[in-house]
C-alpha cells in the first residue's frame, strides 16, 4: 500500500514549501502542495478513487485560512460539501480571532494549529491522525468548540 497523501494548502509559497519539507522529511507520507484554494480543489479531484466512490487518496489537508479569492474557511466548507467528511482537515493559521476559530472548528476539523508551530507538533498531528485517532481528535476539537462557543455567548450576553 502506498503512503497516504497529505495536502498542504497555503498561498505563501515559502510557508507551503517549508511545511511540505517537514512532512517529506519523515518519509512516511506523500505530500501534495497547493498554493491556492483553486489548486487544492483541482488536486482533490485528481486524487479521487473510483470517481469518489472509493474516497480520496488525499487523506489529510493542512489548510491555511488567509488566502486571496477563496479563503481556507470557504474552502473548508466547499470540501465538506463536495468531498464529504472523510478527509481530515487541520487548520493552520496565524489568526487569533474568535470568530474565525468558531467557524473553523464548527466544520469538524481535526485540530487547529497556530503559526508558527513546532515541527514535532505538526508531525504529532499527522501521526495521531493516521494511527486512527481521527474521530477522537475531531471530537476533542469539537468539544473545545462547544466550550468556547458557550464562553462567547456568555461574553456576548454580558455585553
Amino acid at each position: 500500500m502506498s503512503n497516504p497523501i497529505v495536502m498542504v494548502v497555503d498561498d505563501e509559497v515559502d510557508v507551503a514549501n517549508a511545511i511540505t519539507n517537514i512532512i517529506k522529511d519523515t518519509g512516511k507520507y506523500e505530500v501534495v502542495t497547493a498554493y491556492s484554494a483553486k489548486d487544492a480543489l483541482a488536486q482533490l479531484k485528481k486524487h479521487k478513487v473510483l470517481l469518489g466512490l472509493g474516497g480520496n487518496k488525499i487523506r489529510l489537508i493542512l489548510l491555511d485560512i488567509k488566502m486571496p479569492e477563496m479563503d481556507g474557511l470557504q474552502l473548508l466548507e466547499k470540501i465538506r460539501k463536495d468531498f464529504g467528511e472523510d478527509i481530515g482537515i487541520s487548520m493552520l493559521t496565524a489568526w487569533e480571532d474568535d470568530e474565525k476559530w468558531e467557524r473553523a472548528t464548527s466544520g469538524f476539523v481535526i485540530n487547529y494549529i497556530k503559526k508558527p508551530f513546532k515541527s514535532k507538533d505538526l508531525i504529532a498531528t499527522l501521526e495521531n491522525f493516521f494511527k486512527g485517532d481521527e474521530g477522537k481528535m475531531v471530537l476533542n476539537t469539537f468539544e473545545k468548540h462547544i466550550e468556547k462557543r458557550d464562553e462567547f455567548s456568555k461574553k456576548k450576553k454580558k455585553r
Partner: peptide, 24 residues
Amino acid sequence: IAGVTHEIRNPLTVIRSETERLAN
C-alpha cells in the same frame, strides 16, 4: 495590528520550520 501579527507569523513559520530541519 491584528493584520500585522498575522503577517509576522508567516515568515516566523518559515524560519522555524526550516531551522528545525537544519539539523538533518
